[in-house]
């Protein structure tokens, strides 16, 4: 008989749970129902009252670690908090969001408890037991795995489950005491990339990916990097889309070529870059080869604009491919969007 614990944490406001945490709650409820297992939810927040109230309708046992030391993500405090929650719940299966906060500590906590951890889980299945789906080799190989050892920590990728939502109600929360080690790390805050333009928007519905073609010579034999930059930023402004880039484009900074100044390695999609989740994706001036497309694994509806009718996107990797000059198309798209706004 498994005992399931879902670990959750508060967002930047300190009181509400993150969306990814609520998604893990849904996964926990589903799994508990299927396995007929007991369900507990652990909360890490400066004050867990509001979060607990939001979880009241889960009818799960609610545990919390609260207080100032847990206001901010930090390895030593978070590890101690999660360890205490897991011990209190006597959990055999621990579900948690693969957030930066929990991804930092989950492995260490699993080790402290003599358990095991698997991360970036995209699905939990199995008939009698628990089987987890995750990707290897940069989203190129998909595996389903299982473990005999317990406790087993499963960190769920964001967007794989619907976020839990239930009517808030007063809830009984068991406060779990934590023995903290001496603190040697202070979190001083968050910093946005220095370029000033925030182009990465994980919650956006649309991902816009710029490929190296934007800074290559165009049909007139000239490079139009400044114009490319204006078109891309203009599009992001009107649509609120998140900006991704191919590796070759972000790498250009080192070679003295014209580059798009607002791009950093954080924008990179695929290869050594991110694999974000968005409902739609639009690729421009990117060839659509395997290393590019691995970062698109979790983009549901994909379109591309490319001059080459035989580019990778046309071969089952995108839903629609427009054979056209992205400069011309995007200029028109921007003017249509602006007209629509006005």
């Amino acid at each position: 008989m498994e005992t399931i614990l879902v670990l959750t944490h508060a967002d930047e406001t300190g009181s509400a749970l993150t969306k990814a945490s609520l998604e893990a709650v849904t996964a926990g409820k589903e799994l508990a129902a299927r396995l007929n297992a007991s369900l507990a939810i652990g909360i890490v927040a400066i004050d867990a009252t509001a979060a607990a109230s939001a979880l009241a309708s889960t009818v799960a046992r609610l545990l919390a670690v609260s207080g100032e030391p847990f206001a901010q993500p930090r390895y030593s405090t978070d590890a101690a908090a999660l360890e205490a929650l897991c011990r209190a719940a006597e959990a055999s299966i621990v579900l948690a969001p693969a957030s930066a906060r929990f991804a930092r500590v989950a492995a260490g906590v699993a080790h402290r408890l003599g358990g095991f951890v698997d991360t970036h889980i995209t699905a939990i299945g199995g008939t009698d037991g628990v089987e987890a789906t995750r990707w290897f080799y940069r989203q190129r190989v998909e595996a389903v795995l299982s473990r005999d050892g317990r406790p087993w920590f499963l960190l769920l990728d964001a967007g794989t489950h619907a976020a839990f939502a239930g009517p808030p109600a007063p809830a009984q929360v068991e406060q779990v005491a934590v023995e903290l080690p001496a603190l040697r790390t202070t979190v001083t805050g968050l910093r946005a990339p220095s370029q000033g333009t925030q182009t990465i928007r994980p919650d956006a519905k649309l991902l816009f990916v710029a490929g190296a073609g934007w800074t290559k010579k165009q049909s007139d034999g000239q490079v139009h990097a400044a114009e490319a930059g204006d078109l891309i930023l203009g599009f992001l402004r009107t649509t609120g889309a998140s900006l991704g880039s191919s590796k070759s484009l972000v790498d250009q900074g080192g070679e003295g070529q014209p580059v798009l100044p607002f791009l950093t390695h954080l924008n990179q999609i695929g290869q050594t870059g991110a694999t974000p989740r968005h409902a739609r994706g639009l690729s421009t001036c990117c060839h659509g080869e395997e290393p590019h497309v691995v970062g698109w694994r979790f983009i549901a509806d994909r379109r591309a604009i490319n001059l080459d009718p035989n580019c990778g996107w046309t071969r089952g990797k995108a839903d629609v491919v427009y054979i056209a000059d992205a400069f011309q198309v995007m200029a028109k798209v921007n003017s249509l969007l602006e007209a629509k706004k006005a």
Binding site: H287, E289, E290, P291, D308, N310, C311, G312, R315, G316
Partner: peptide, 14 residues
């Protein structure tokens, strides 16, 4: 083109 054996030269490069 079949995307597997008969591919563009660009694809052959990559």
């Amino acid at each position: 083109f079949d995307g597997r054996l008969l591919v563009t030269q660009q694809d052959a490069l990559l």
